[in-house]
Design a binder for these strands. Structure first.
Lengths: 119, 119, 119, 119
DNA sequence: GTGGTCTAGACCACT
DNA sequence: GTGGTCTAGACCACC
């Protein structure tokens, strides 16, 4: 369970995204206990409040649940996590196409650029 | 000169991007006068301060220049505008790949999704 | 628009409750602008973060919406606000009956106590 | 001696309340020995530390006393238990009225709702 | 000025 | 130790 966070890009959102991704990949299974808020904060080099915020957000979306004094756990129903992830993907892709359109790129050109992109 | 601005997505950035795109496309040529801050603000249904901010930003990047009391104009040297646009594109694409990586998608999968994306 | 907050009783929840109550009472109408986060924080003698948290919570419930850089507004659809308020009422009443049951009071006794209660 | 604890509602407080209620009802009499911390914890499906915490709290209020190595007992003086219970009742009722007031309900409306409430 | 996000650190109840 | 809440104060983009 390794966390790679880019501090210049919305930490809370990255946490939520990566947790959903881990659930989708089966790395986190229903009922699994996550690292504690403080542990994860240390491991990720981030403020505990930010982790708490991310967990609470995923709780409201039905991905995680908390047992006060005990920890945070993955909900039994994995479907909502997959759904949340799907929505995030769609959100990011449409925002990307919009940003590129602002820069004067047509859909075909955008797809070509992405296709040829070397990381 | 028609402006399409999505109010939920960072107006200032959209303005800068669209201006660079117009220069790159030859719609705006060196020496051309832009709409006044007020006119553009009205036409785009946006706060004049935001337009002012965008113009100033492009001025600092060497894309536009202002003649006090007269208006804003496209710089003679179009190369910097093209360069600014290229950087913005690269910025957006890398951020996009990072966001998708957070969601657990490999480069190949990302390219596939973009390729098949229907707007 | 006067705010009375008891600092020993969950400030965030009180804010949410009172906002819903104001909407239900017609004091806040659809489209109305609320006090800014900072203003309300000062007026209520509370930390701006707490106000922000309350507003964000009501946003997720479809009661308020924000226009970045401008302020917070009451959603057009007042029905959800009424629904949220109704749920909060039910929540509080059932919790109250549970608490009283723990203290050994039967429903009839509880109702009698409430009926005779002098504030 | 059967314990009904709702895990989502402050276990420690429920224990204290229910013990006071049993004393008030005469189910627990002065000098009676309670279940051991461990036994009660098992029977209620709760952490032993939580039970310990509740007993200690009631000890400080003069409701219970402990004989080290032997167990916990009901104090001879039942009056303090009754008093503690009375205070808890008053506390809960006033908190309830405050919560409902936040939601914009007048005392009369609150009483009406409680009166008509069906469990 | 506005909201949005993050850090830092405190206190509480509960396990 | 755990989560939950609140305070305090900072920085950013945008109006």
């Amino acid at each position: 369970m390794k966390w790679k966070l880019d501090k210049s890009r919305g930490i809370c959102a990255q946490l939520c995204a990566q947790i959903c991704a881990r659930i989708a990949a089966g790395i986190l299974k229903p009922g699994d206990k996550l690292l504690s808020v403080r542990e994860l904060a240390v491991e990720a080099g981030v403020n505990p409040n930010t982790v708490q915020h991310a967990f609470t957000q995923l709780e409201q979306q039905g991905v995680l649940y908390s047992v006060p004094g005990t920890g945070w756990f993955v909900c039994e129903d994995t479907k909502t996590a997959l759904q949340v992830r799907r929505e995030l993907v769609a959100e990011k892709v449409t925002a990307f196409f919009s940003d590129m359109a602002d820069l004067g790129m047509l859909p075909g050109e955008i797809k070509e650029i992405v296709k040829e992109w070397k990381l």
